[in-house]
């Protein structure tokens, strides 16, 4: 059923990761993703993986849920790994069969790419599992606020994101309802070729657009009635405050990056 689609995969909880400030989480996630590409040997890679495992533990997100978020990238993962495995021609040859050449460097590159993709996807999944969509957009707004100086409408962008997320379930419900209504009039949405099916969707899409616009107007009026005038001078109900927890996390991340850089100096790169 169409309503089984879940977007914004927040899992409610009270763990260390849940209580962390959204801004810290966003910055750290980005820092992690960049750092993982700085790893050139197994020592630094191991450190990064260990750190990801620690974060998973601190978030109390079940491993099963984390694995579920990896399922969509399984194909890309396999594809990248296989491609790297046979495409790297440098290094000593381990195995050769007709045109297929497997070198030690190729093997390492494949493993590195796979581990990188795995950890970057699971760390970003961890961010969305432990942060509500609202906190996420609030965090993005705060982080991007310096861009206001060069006239980027940061508040409007963040508000648009919040509203878009808010209306996803509403629109899914609406699609469901319109589909039932048209099916009741004999619309055939399931059979036929590609063109036929695209055409059959028109009776669903047109009412959907009409009602999306209607909702947008209604929402705009409702917001204006409550004196919404954009971000200028607007205060927040939930103030974002950085605490000890956030400071500790930031320090840990600085140490992590320093560790990766130092390990890169002391041990030779394998890729």
């Amino acid at each position: 059923m169409i309503r089984d689609i879940t977007i914004g995969q927040y899992l409610s909880g009270t763990s260390f990761m849940h209580k962390l400030d959204a801004r810290v989480k966003i910055v750290c996630t980005f820092a992690y993703i960049i750092t993982i590409f700085l790893c050139k040997n197994f020592w630094s890679l191991g450190l990064m993986v260990a750190f990801a495992a620690l974060m998973t533990l601190l978030s109390r997100v079940p491993v099963r849920m984390l694995l579920r978020s990896l399922r969509p990238v399984a194909f890309i993962l396999l594809f990248t790994a296989v491609l790297n495995l046979f495409y790297t021609k440098t290094g000593s040859v381990l195995f050769q069969w007709k045109f297929l050449i497997l070198t030690d460097k190729g093997l390492y590159t494949a493993v590195f790419m796979a581990v990188r993709i795995l950890s970057l996807v699971s760390v970003s999944a961890l961010l969305t599992y432990t942060t509500t969509p609202t906190a996420l957009t609030d965090g993005i707004e705060k982080l991007l606020s310096p861009l206001k100086l060069i006239k980027v409408p940061v508040h409007s962008l963040a508000m648009m994101m919040t509203l878009a997320l808010r209306f996803i379930p509403t629109l899914i419900e609406e699609i469901d309802r319109i589909m039932s209504a048209q099916k009741a009039r004999g619309a055939d949405l399931e059979t036929g070729g590609f063109i036929q099916r695209a055409k059959a969707l028109l009776p669903v899409l047109i009412p959907l657009f009409v009602s999306a616009f209607r909702r947008a107007y209604e929402l705009a009026f409702a917001m204006e009635c409550r004196c919404y005038r954009g971000g200028e001078g607007r205060t927040r109900m939930k103030q974002m405050k950085l605490g000890v927890r956030d400071a500790v996390t930031a320090v840990c991340f600085v140490l992590l990056i320093a560790g990766v850089v130092l390990l890169g100096r002391f041990f030779p790169a394998v890729i």
């Binding site: 209504a181 009039r185 047109i206």
Partner: peptide, 17 residues
Amino acid sequence: ARFRVGMCFQYPEYQLF
């Protein structure tokens, strides 16, 4: 059965297209 039992949902005007 879809044609033998005509179903008109709540707020049917939103199905006009």
